[in-house]
Computed example of a mutant assay.
Amino acid sequence: MSDQAVLTARLVRSFEHRNFKPIVFIGVNLDQTVEDFISFVKQDISSRSGLPPPFKKFDYDTMKVIHQAHGAKTNELVMSLEDDEKLILSGGCSLRACGVANETELAFFKMSDYEKFKANPQTTW
């Protein structure tokens, strides 16, 4: 089992408008903590070229597994609203302990926006 993984983080700015951008990270250490990975991603996107400024400056604070390699994908366009207890990465544990493996796709979003959308899941165009 390799310690280096390829992970995709889907930066979600708006659930209502389905506004997100996927970013791929190569060589991610799955034994780092969720907090360390979130800090790394925030730092990376703030200086990443080709990423529109609204995505760089957004206040992301939560990660959730969208799907695993070779697993079933959700029909939701942004991410599933189900299984939060199981799929939201909890602080204090490693990525691996939270079920993250090579080629996992994660959503990176602001929890307060997610809770508001989940209470009234309407999308607009």
Rank of each mutant, 00 (worst) to 15 (best):
K110Y: 08
D36L: 12
Q68I: 06
R10M: 11
I66S: 04
F108G: 00
D36P: 08
Q4T: 10
V65G: 05
S94L: 08
F117A: 04
S14K: 10
L11Y: 02
F20L: 14
V24I: 11
E76W: 12
S49E: 15
R13F: 03
V78M: 09
L11A: 00
V28Q: 05
Q32C: 04
F25A: 10
I88F: 02
D59G: 01
Y114F: 00
A107F: 07
E35G: 06
A97N: 14
D3K: 15
R13Q: 12
E115C: 01
F37R: 09
S2R: 13
G91R: 15
E103H: 15
D44S: 15
Q4S: 13
S14P: 03
T62R: 01
W125I: 09
K21W: 14
I88W: 01
D113L: 08
E115F: 05
I23C: 10
S94F: 05
Q68S: 00
S46N: 13
K57I: 12
I88G: 08
L89M: 03
H70A: 12
K21D: 11
E82N: 09
T33M: 10
Q4A: 13
K73G: 03
K57L: 12
G50W: 03
H17P: 03
Q68G: 02
N29V: 00
T8I: 13
I66Q: 07
G91C: 14
S39M: 13
A69E: 00
T8M: 11
A72V: 06
T62M: 05
A97Q: 15
R48L: 13
V6G: 02
D3T: 15
I38P: 09
L77I: 14
K110H: 08
M1Q: 01
K57C: 01
S80M: 05
G50H: 05
L11H: 08
I88T: 09
K56I: 05
V12L: 06
T104E: 03
I23M: 13
